[in-house]
Structure formats: structure tokens, C-alpha cells
Design a protein around this nucleic acid. Sequence first.
DNA 1: TTTTTATACTTACTTTTGGTAAGTCAAAGA
DNA 2: TCTTTGACTTACCAAAAGTAAGTATAAAAA
Lengths: 118, 118
Amino acid sequence: MKDFSTSTNCPVRNVLDRLSDKWTTLVVLVLGEHEKMRFNELHKAIGDISEKMLTVSLRKLEADGLIARQVFPVIPPKVEYQLTDLGRNFLPLIDSISNWAYQNMEEIMNNRQQYQAS
Amino acid sequence: MKDFSTSTNCPVRNVLDRLSDKWTTLVVLVLGEHEKMRFNELHKAIGDISEKMLTVSLRKLEADGLIARQVFPVIPPKVEYQLTDLGRNFLPLIDSISNWAYQNMEEIMNNRQQYQAS
DNA sequence: TTTTTATACTTACTTTTGGTAAGTCAAAGA
DNA sequence: TCTTTGACTTACCAAAAGTAAGTATAAAAA
């Protein structure tokens, strides 16, 4: 049994906090479907993420080693992102969460309505 | 292939956003180890969550039907929380994320240090 | 030749969310 | 009568995220 009781000093919690983040998981999900993607592609694919937050999310994932960032020294700039081995290794986990959400969303939506009504 | 491009109108995204939240996942994780827990037990088990955020997280999970809240009409108050079937059904997914984080945290920490240094 | 366009970001500013600490309620015990 | 207990609220402040405009540079278009 692991220790969740300690905050920033616990590496597991630290990793977990970063990966259980709205945008981060989404970036991994869409990157999981495309092999290589450029910044604007990701931006369009996710749709409602701001450029700022996309940048932040990408940097965090890069720092953690889940994605690789390749810069082409051209103008206008070209940058490609792709999952690393570590990222690809993580993908199925978050993919299964996405699937679970898909399969259970109806029930969850119903539950929410019940809850509202009471 | 699912559509992630639309924001609040997409139920999958909606569910996903809520479940890929720092505190929410943690609450499910600790509830997964204890069967029934009272408010203050959860608070101590998680450690660095504020009472406010614990309340918010519990309400959201309750609304979505992942946990059940049982109030005992006594003074001082007594409230017990436990995973519902839906919650228990979700638990293994997040458990495996937690395990993945545990197994890969060393590599991730190393990656982060490399990144900082560059 | 000046203007526009393309791409991947920054930056300044505002809004929303989260954290902190103190307060509430009602009864039982000191 | 004052304190304690447990599950919250609430008011206030800090941090994070959203918004919109700006930056850099060269090639292509006007």
C-alpha cells in the first residue's frame, strides 16, 4: 500500500498530479492517434485549449519525457511533437479511461440530473 | 474514433475533464482502500487537501454517482462515504494509473532533471 | 518595394479556481 | 457555563487558467 498522505514530497503524488490534469491527458490522447503532430494541428484537434495552455502542457509532458519535441529551423517555424516510448507506454491507461468515460457517460449524465433534482 | 474537438458540448470530454482532476482521482483512490470512510478520515488520508476542496470533490463524485454519501442524524454529525458500483468499476483504471506512476516515477524524475539542466 | 502570410509561440491583463483560516450548529461532557 | 466534536461554510487572498494582442523572420503576394 502506497502513501498518499504527503504532498509535494511524495514523488508518486507529484507524478500523479501532473498526469491527472485536464489538458495533459487530452494532449496524450490526441497525440496517440496521429504519430506526429505540429503545434497548430494539436491546437485544432483539441479545439478549446488556449495556445498558452497548450504550450504549458506540451512543455510539462516534454519535461517528464512523455513526448518529444523536434524543432525544424525554418521560417515560418515548424515543430513536431510525438509520443516517446514512455508516452506510448502510458497511452493505453489513459485510453482506457477515455473509453470508460464513453461507455459510462450516459449513466453519469443521468446521475447528475437526479442529483440536481434533489 | 471519438471526437475531442468540441468543448463543453461533448459529454465524453465533460466526463473526462471531471475525472482527470487532481483531487477527484485521489479521493477515489483512497476510498478504494477503505470501503467506508468519514469526512475527517478522508481528510487525514489525503493529507494536503483543504476541507473546502474535499467537500467540492466529494459532491462532484456523488453527483456523478461514483460515491454514495450516507448521513447519520446525530450530533456531532456523522457522514460516511463509499464507492458505488460505478465507482468500484472505475477504480481499477485509476489504480493502474497510480501504479504506472509508481513504476515510472524514477524515470520521470530523471527526465525532469535533464530537462531543467538544458 | 511594401504588404501580407505563415507558424509557434509570448506577454499583459482579466477571470476563474483553489487555498487559508475562521466560523457555524447542537448536544454531550467537564 | 465553557469546551469539544464533526462536517461542513464563508470570506478573503493567492495561484492558475482564459483572452487577446503582440513577436520574429523570410518567402510569397500585391
